[in-house]
């Protein structure tokens, strides 16, 4: 089966079959969209919450939550998905190093919050998530079934 890797800041879409995989989500958030009827699946690997056009003008749309979610939706639609059928799942947003948090909310937590806010804006239901904590994750979306498998080092994989 075709397996496509989604690196930091990237968005990838597959149709009919295959697996979208992102390895090593730390404070980044992996977001998947799935249309069970059209069998279209999309994944984004979100790096930070808010885009910074002045400092990072040529950023990939998938890098920041506020640009990633609209781009993820339109790329899924371009492959035949319908917005009203899309469902979302999230993984990541951890805080591996406690000393990284410079204020009350860790960057991982800020990323989760920003992604959820964007999905709510587009009225896309979040039907599964495995987020926060202090460990890295691997996330895989199986296009045919819409199942997302999340793996944590040294632990059993879980389905969300």
């Amino acid at each position: 089966m075709q397996e496509v890797f989604v690196n930091m800041g990237q968005i990838r879409v597959l149709q009919t079959s295959g697996i979208l995989t992102t390895v090593g989500l730390g404070s980044c958030v992996g977001v998947t969209l799935h249309d069970p009827v059209a069998k279209v699946g999309a994944m984004a690997h979100v790096f930070l919450a808010k885009s910074r056009p002045e400092r990072d003008p040529n950023a990939l749309p998938g890098k920041y939550a506020d640009t990633a979610i609209p781009a993820l939706i339109s790329q899924a639609i371009a492959k035949g998905a319908r917005q009203e059928r899309l469902v979302a799942k999230l993984a990541g947003g951890a805080n591996l190093f406690a000393n990284l948090a410079t204020n009350n909310l860790s960057i991982g937590a800020q990323n989760i919050e920003a992604v959820i806010q964007q999905l709510n804006l587009f009225k896309i239901p979040i039907i599964g998530k495995d987020v926060a904590g202090n460990h890295g994750r691997k996330m895989r979306l199986f296009i045919e079934s819409g199942i997302v498998v999340v793996t944590t080092a040294g632990q059993e994989s879980i389905e969300i």
Partner: peptide, 25 residues
Amino acid sequence: SVPDIAIDISAAIWQSILVNAEIAD
């Protein structure tokens, strides 16, 4: 700063450091 340690997948460790550094281009 105060140090911290994590034992995890290499990519997750790297990524957390890069996110914290808020890498631009």
